[in-house]
Write a protein that binds this DNA or RNA. Structure first.
Length: 293
DNA sequence: GGTAGACCTGGACGC
DNA sequence: GCGTCCAGGTCTACC
């Protein structure tokens, strides 16, 4: 079955898909690189659905081989609105961007929305798995979690949904470490899953929390395995546009862009984008590094 | 508050 | 093929 979702005037599906590497992490898949994507989701009633999202004249088109009830379709639409950041009003950011040559392209290309997962739990696990490893390592670890603990769509072993907190909480810690190859990150993921499964940590509530960014950052830093970089990355995914996820890549590009390749500190990265105030995270993320204007 | 070392894996490199 | 080194963030112990 097919159904469409309306999108804001400035929306660009390729721009959202290209916003970062999440589309390369299971259960995302992109056969048509950066124009469309596939995803596998587990609905609230336990049904696992594989679907594709493509650009369409009236917005985006969702296609699935599964016949969905009206309630299921509404749930999927609600989740996709979050994943594609459809509710975001980018005009205030675009007003800034139009005045900065290194950001002018975001307006032209409809950039500014960042692809995310249906749940903050999935995004938090994936963020932990980006730390202290290569991108290839992250992809491997995420795929292993999906293959080992995710629920399949039907009888076939693949494709599978991202595992629930309950599934990961029930997993043997040694299996997480040795079979999923999470290494020392295994206890972090295990503890996070257990806290979420028990209801001790209401991660999803952070999506709509009215907390100042500093307070929310403290809450995220209290999660084992989430340090300064991971917290900033999650804040960015939560739409907190004043957070800059400073990792080794950030230090490198800021060094090259603003300091002639000389070594820089996290404070230098912050200083480089401070003038963008509440939009400094977006300015950092969408900056045209190394390109002449 | 700041710093050093451990954690784990894969890739690059030299032999 | 094997061994060594390094990159990549976070945690913990220590000062």
């Amino acid at each position: 079955m097919r159904f469409s979702l309306p999108v804001p005037p400035s929306f660009s599906l390729p721009a959202v898909i290209r916003s970062h590497g999440w589309v390369q992490l299971a259960p995302y898949d992109s056969q048509d690189p950066y124009h469309a994507f596939a995803y596998v989701d587990r609905l609230a009633n336990g049904r696992v659905v594989a679907y594709e999202v493509q650009p369409a004249a009236e917005g985006v088109q969702v296609t699935t081989e599964t016949m969905l009830s009206e309630e299921e379709r509404a749930e999927l639409a609600h989740k996709l609105a979050w994943m594609l950041n459809l509710e975001r009003d980018l005009e205030p950011f675009y007003t800034f961007a139009r005045q900065e040559p290194k950001l002018a392209h975001v307006v032209e290309k409809g950039e500014g929305r960042i692809l995310r997962s249906p749940t903050l739990f999935e995004d938090t696990v994936k963020t932990i798995l980006t730390t202290n490893t290569s991108w290839g390592g992250t992809r491997r670890m995420v795929s292993a979690l999906v293959d080992l603990y995710g629920e399949p769509v039907g009888e076939d072993p693949a494709p599978r949904a991202f595992p629930t907190a309950q599934a990961l909480a029930a997993a043997d810690a040694a299996s997480l470490r040795d079979e999923a190859k999470l290494g020392y990150r295994a206890p972090y993921v295990s503890e996070l899953a257990r806290r979420v499964a028990r209801g001790d940590l209401e991660l999803e509530a952070y999506k709509t929390a009215d907390l100042p960014t500093g307070e929310l950052r403290k809450e995220l830093l209290a999660i084992k395995g989430v340090g300064a970089y991971a917290a900033a990355n999650l804040l960015m995914l939560l739409g907190r546009t004043d957070a800059i996820p400073i990792d080794s890549y950030a230090l490198k590009v800021v060094s090259n862009e603003f300091h002639d390749g000389q070594p820089v500190t996290p404070a230098d990265v912050t200083a480089a984008f401070e003038r963008f105030g509440e939009w400094q995270g977006m300015a950092f993320w969408f900056w045209s590094y190394g390109e002449e204007t």
